[in-house]
Design a binder for these strands. Structure first.
Length: 868
RNA sequence: GCCGAAGUGGCGGAAUUGGUAGACGCGCACGAUUGAGGGUCGUGUGGGGAGACCUAUGCGGGUUCGAGUCCCGCCUUCGGCACCA
C-alpha cells in the first residue's frame, strides 16, 4: 500500500516548488528569512495550475490498485467522443466527477477514476470525406488535444487505465462478445424493415430514432428492407424491467423512461376462425374482458393473411395505398369475415393503417365501444358499436339483463375504463378485472388462446453500413454459409488503406484485401461481412475495461479468477455521471451487456451503475450553447483568462448539478473575487498564518464572543459542506456555506495567541473544505500555512456537534401566526421558560394587553406563537 | 392526448420533519480609497408606505395556531412517450 502521508518532498528529483515572494514590500523577506512567503502577492492561476498539474501527473497520484479490505469507490463520467475540443457540457460533467473523486479520496476511499475515448463514429469519417484526413489520424490528434485540455482543467484520472475504443486491443473484445453471443443465440441475422438514415447512409436501432429523425443528425428516417445483425436484448426484457426496481440510486425519471421503453403488457392471444377457411387469425389483446364487444377485426397492411386470402386485385391495391398518416384512421374491408370464439358472431376483417405488424401479432379484435381508435374507425366506416362495459355507478346496481345500453345514445367517445360487464353471456354483472382472468382461463382451457406477455422493446440492430467501426467477425462462404471468424483469429483488423468517398455503402465492401478471404471451414473463396458494429456496443462495457486496467490489459480469456477478483473489487460503478440524453440508449445497452457478461461468468453484478447523476445542460442567454446560436463559451478561453479553479468554482456554485446551469460571465468574475479575497487575506496575514496550525485548540474557555462565534461557525460549516455533498452532491450550497465562513473569517481579528491559533485552525479547515473544488489554489495555500503533504491525502475535516451548537438563539414571537417580535435567549431552555420570556417582551405585552391567550405554541429553537 | 419534472426578488439560486421566505452569489445604489478609471473595501437592496404596519413563493380554494412545503382544482414552461391493441 502506498503511504501517501509520508511524502515530504514535492518532485521525484527531490526539488521543491520554489517559494516565490517577489514583493519588495514584503518585510518578512528581510526580517524573517525562515518564514518566507510561499505565495506570490497576487493570485496567478496560470502559473500555479501548471505547477500542480505537472506534479499530480508526474507522481501518478491517482493510479490505483485493488486493495483488499479497503473500501473502494468507483467514480465514472461518461467518456467523450473525441470530436476535437472539450465543450462546456464536458467541463461540467467532469468537474462534478473530479470533485466527488477528491472528496471520496479524502474520506478514505480507494477511488477509481478513469477516462477514455469513445472514438469510433461518424464524425471521423465525415472529416475524412471533407478534409481528406484519415479517420484514424483525425481521431488520434483530437484525443491528444482533448487529453491535454482535461489535464488543464485539473481533472485527475488514473491515465494508466485509459481506453480508446477504436484501437484493435479494445474492439477485439467487441468481436469476442459478438461470437459469444452468437454461440448463445443472442446474436442473429435477419432481414427486416429497418430505420435508415439517408444522410448517415446507415441503419439505426429503434432507440436511435428520435422524433422520426436520426438521433445524430436529425435527418428524417425512412424504412428500408435490409439483412442485418441483431443482439437479442428482448431475451433480457423481463430482467431489465424487474431490476429497474433495484436502481434506487437513479433518478426516478430515468428509470421510468426505461420501464416505458421496455413497455411490458400482459394479455392473451386469441384465435379467430376465418369464415369459410381453415385459416385462423391470431390477435393480441389486453382487454379480453371486451371480447363480447368485438364488432370487427383489423390487421396490418403487411399481415400475411392478406396475401393468403384476398384475391381481389382492386382491394389489394387499396390496401397498399393506405396512408401512414397517424392522424387519420384508414382502412379497407378485405372481404373476409371472422368468427368471435365466444359468441360465434361473424364480424368483418379490415386492413387498417394504425395496426402495427411489429407489435403483438399484427392483428387485433376491434371493440369500438371501448377503444378510442376502434371507435373512430367504426364511425368512419359505419360499423356498429356494442357496449359490454358500463361504469360502476356507486350504489346504483346495474341490471345485467337490461343495462340501459348506450347503443341508442350515440356516445361521443369510447368508454375505455374498467367497469361492470353487460351483455357478456355468463360473465355479465362481473367486474372487468374479474372477468379478464376468467376469460383468459377459459380461452386457455378451450385451446382458443393463451396468456402472453408482450414488450415494446425490439431487438437491438447493430449492423452499420459504415467504415469507422468494429468489423463484425463473420465470413460468408458460398457452400458453408454464415461462418464466424475463429476466436484465435481475432481481432479482425479494420484496414487503414481504404478509399472513403462518402458515396453509398461501406468503403470496406470495395476493399478487396479485406473482403476476399478463404472460408475457415472449407477453404473456398469467401467474403467477409463488411458492416461494422453500432458504436453503442463500444460504450456498453468500457466501464469494465477500466477495471481490468485499460486497453492493452483487457483479456477475457485470462484466468477467470484473476478477472473476477478485479471486477468484483471495482464493480459496480458507485457513481455514474452524464447527460440525460442517454437515459434509454447507452444506459439500457450497458445494463443488457452487464447481464450478458454475468451469464458468461465474467462479472458478478446484476447492474453496472449503482447511482446515476444526470447533470443538466449548460445554457447561455436562455438557450443551449450551440454554434448556430452563437452563444458558445470556449473552455480554453475561460481557463486562460480566469484559471480552471475559478471556472470550477463557478460551475459548481451556479446551480445544483441536476439542473440546467445558466452561464454568466459576471458570475465567473464573482467566483474569482471569492478566491482572490482568500488569497489576499492569507498573504497579508502571513506572520500569523504561516505557523502550522495544530489540529486541536488549546484553550477556548476565555474566547471573546467573536472568537467563540467563529469557532462555532467553523464547525457548522464543516457539517453543512459535508452534508451537502453526502446528501445529494449539492455543491452550490456547499460553496455558499464556505463563502459564509470565509466572510466571517475575514472579519475576525484575534486578540491573543489562543485566538490567533483559532484563526490558523479555521483557515486550515477552509482550505481543506475548498480543496476538491479549487484544487490547485488550495494546494498553494496549504504550503503557505506551513503544511507540506498533498491535500487530497489529508483527512476530510470532522465537526463536533457540541461546538457547532448555538449558545444563543434568536426566537421569533408570533401573534396569531404573524411575526411581532424577536427575542434572544440562551439555547436549550425549557418550554415554560421560553413562554415566559416571550410574554415578558414589552412589545408583546403591549399587543396582548387585556386579552388572554387561547393557545400558546412553543417550537424549540424556532418560535413561540401566541393565539389570542 | 398520456407520463414526469419545474414555476420563489432585476438575475442564478437558498430554505431537515409544515415553524423567521429570499442564505450565498450576480446586478444595482450610495459612501470610502484614487488625479481619474479600474480594482478593492464598507453600507443598503422583494414590493407598497413618512411611519406603526401592510403585502409577497404561477392562479383559485382547503387543512392548520402556522403552508414555498400538505390536500383539491386550474394555468404556464420544459423534458419523455406518442396509434404498442
Amino acid at each position: 500500500m502506498k503511504d501517501y502521508g509520508k511524502i515530504t518532498h514535492f518532485f521525484k528529483d527531490g526539488s521543491r516548488p520554489q517559494a516565490s515572494c517577489k514583493s519588495t514590500a514584503c518585510w518578512n523577506k528581510r526580517n524573517h528569512p525562515k518564514r518566507r512567503h510561499y505565495l506570490e502577492e497576487r493570485y496567478n492561476a496560470q502559473k500555479i495550475e501548471k505547477k500542480w498539474q505537472e506534479f499530480w501527473d508526474r507522481e501518478k497520484l491517482f493510479a490505483v490498485t485493488e486493495e483488499a479490505g479497503r473500501p473502494k469507490f468507483y467514480c465514472l463520467e461518461m467518456f467523450p467522443y473525441p470530436s476535437g475540443r472539450i465543450h462546456m457540457g464536458h467541463v461540467r460533467n467532469y468537474v462534478i466527477g473530479d470533485v466527488i473523486t477528491r472528496y471520496k479520496k479524502m474520506r478514505g476511499f480507494n477511488v477509481l477514476h478513469p477516462m477514455g475515448w469513445d472514438s469510433f463514429g461518424m464524425p471521423a469519417e465525415n472529416a475524412a470525406i471533407k478534409h481528406g484526413v484519415h479517420p484514424s489520424k483525425w481521431t488520434h490528434e483530437n484525443i491528444a488535444y482533448m487529453k491535454d485540455q482535461l489535464k488543464k482543467m485539473g481533472l485527475v484520472y488514473d491515465w494508466q487505465r485509459e481506453v480508446t475504443t477504436c484501437s484493435p486491443e479494445y474492439y477485439k473484445w467487441n468481436q469476442w462478445f459478438f461470437l459469444k453471443m452468437l454461440e448463445r443465440g443472442l446474436a442473429y441475422k435477419k432481414a427486416s424493415s429497418v430505420n435508415w438514415c439517408p444522410s448517415c447512409e446507415t441503419v439505426l436501432a429503434n432507440e436511435q430514432v428520435v422524433n422520426d429523425g436520426c438521433w445524430r443528425c436529425d435527418t428524417a428516417v425512412v424504412q428500408k428492407d435490409l439483412e442485418q445483425w441483431f443482439f437479442k436484448i428482448t431475451a433480457y426484457a423481463e430482467e431489465l424491467l424487474k431490476d429497474a426496481d433495484t436502481l434506487s440510486g437513479w433518478p426516478e425519471k430515468v428509470v421510468t423512461m426505461q420501464r416505458n421503453w421496455i413497455g411490458r403488457s400482459e394479455g392473451v392471444e386469441v384465435d379467430f376462425r376465418i369464415t369459410g377457411s381453415e385459416r385462423k387469425l391470431r390477435i393480441f389483446t389486453t382487454r379480453q374482458d371486451t371480447l363480447y364487444g368485438a364488432t370487427f377485426m383489423s390487421v396490418a397492411g403487411k399481415h400475411p393473411v392478406i396475401q393468403e386470402l384476398v384475391k381481389d386485385e382492386e382491394i389489394l391495391r387499396q390496401i397498399k395505398a393506405l396512408s401512414d398518416d397517424p392522424e387519420e384512421k384508414q382502412g379497407v374491408f378485405t372481404g373476409c369475415y371472422a368468427e368471435n370464439p365466444l359468441t360465434g358472431d361473424s364480424i368483418p376483417v379490415y386492413a387498417a393503417n394504425f395496426v402495427l405488424m411489429e407489435y403483438g401479432t399484427g392483428a387485433i379484435m376491434a371493440v369500438p365501444a371501448h377503444d378510442q381508435r376502434d371507435f373512430e374507425f367504426a364511425k368512419k366506416y359505419n360499423i356498429p358499436l356494442k357496449v359490454v362495459i358500463v361504469e360502476r355507478s356507486g350504489d346504483v346496481s346495474v341490471d345485467p339483463s337490461n343495462p340501459g345500453t348506450l347503443e341508442s345514445s350515440d356516445p361521443k367517445e369510447a368508454f375505455e375504463d374498467y367497469g361492470t360487464l353487460v351483455k357478456s353471456g355468463p360473465y355479465s354483472g362481473l367486474s372487468s378485472e374479474e372477468k379478464k382472468k376468467k376469460i383468459a382461463d377459459f380461452l386457455e382451457r378451450e385451446g382458443l388462446g393463451k396468456k402472453v406477455v408482450n414488450y415494446k422493446l425490439r431487438d437491438w440492430g447493430i449492423s452499420r453500413q459504415r467504415y469507422w467501426g468494429t468489423p463484425i467477425p463473420i465470413i460468408y462462404c458460398p457452400s458453408c454459409g454464415i461462418i464466424p471468424v475463429p476466436e484465435d483469429q481475432l481481432p479482425v483488423i479494420l484496414p487503414e488503406d481504404v478509399h472513403i468517398s462518402g458515396k453509398g455503402g461501406s468503403p470496406l465492401a470495395e476493399t478487396k484485401g479485406f473482403v476476399n478471404i478463404k472460408c475457415p471451414r472449407c477453404g473456398a473463396d469467401a467474403r467477409r461481412e463488411t458492416d461494422t458494429m453500432d458504436t453503442f456496443v463500444d460504450s456498453s462495457w468500457y466501464f469494465i475495461a477500466y477495471c481490468l486496467g485499460g486497453n492493452e490489459k483487457v483479456d477475457f480469456n485470462s484466468e477467470l479468477s484473476t478477472l473476477n477478483s478485479q471486477l468484483s473489487y471495482w464493480m459496480p460503478v458507485d457513481q455514474y455521471i452524464g447527460g440525460i440524453e442517454h437515459a434509454v440508449l447507452h444506459l439500457l445497452y450497458s445494463r443488457f451487456f452487464t447481464k450478458v457478461l454475468r451469464d458468461l461468468g465474467l462479472v458478478r453484478v446484476n447492474e453496472p451503475f449503482k447511482s446515476l447523476l444526470t447533470q443538466g445542460m449548460v445554457i447561455k442567454d436562455g438557450a443551449k450553447m450551440s454554434k448556430s446560436k452563437g452563444n458558445v463559451v470556449d473552455p480554453d478561453f475561460l481557463v486562460g483568462k480566469y484559471g480552471t479553479d475559478t471556472v470550477r468554482i463557478f460551475s459548481m456554485f451556479a446551480a445544483p448539478p441536476e439542473r440546467d446551469l445558466e452561464w454568466s460571465d459576471q458570475g465567473v468574475d464573482g467566483a474569482l473575487r471569492f478566491l482572490n479575497r482568500i488569497w489576499t487575506f492569507i498573504y497579508k496575514n502571513h506572520d500569523v498564518l504561516s505557523i502550522k496550525a495544530g489540529n486541536q485548540l488549546k484553550d477556548v474557555s476565555h474566547f471573546s464572543a467573536s472568537a467563540s462565534q467563529l469557532l462555532r461557525k467553523t464547525h457548522q460549516t464543516i457539517k453543512k459542506v459535508t452534508n451537502s455533498i453526502e446528501r445529494d452532491y449539492h455543491f452550490n450550497t456547499a460553496i455558499a456555506a464556505l463563502m459564509e465562513l470565509v466572510n466571517e473569517t475575514l472579519a475576525f481579528s484575534p486578540s491573543d495567541e489562543d485566538e490567533r491559533d483559532l484563526l490558523r485552525y479555521t483557515v486550515r479547515q477552509v482550505i481543506l473544505l475548498l480543496s476538491p473544488f479549487a484544487p490547485h489554489f488550495s494546494e498553494e495555500l496549504w504550503r503557505e500555512i506551513g503544511e507540506s503533504g498533498v491535500l487530497f491525502n489529508e483527512n476530510w475535516p470532522a465537526w463536533d456537534d457540541d461546538i457547532a451548537k448555538d449558545e444563543e438563539i434568536e426566537l421569533v414571537v408570533q401573534l396569531n401566526g404573524k411575526v411581532r417580535a424577536r427575542i434572544t435567549i440562551a439555547a436549550g431552555l425549557d418550554d415554560d421558560t421560553i413562554r415566559e420570556r416571550a410574554f415578558s417582551d414589552e412589545k408583546i405585552q403591549e399587543l396582548i394587553k387585556g386579552k388572554s391567550p387561547r393557545k400558546v405554541i412553543v417550537v424549540q429553537g424556532r418560535l413561540v406563537n401566541i393565539v389570542i
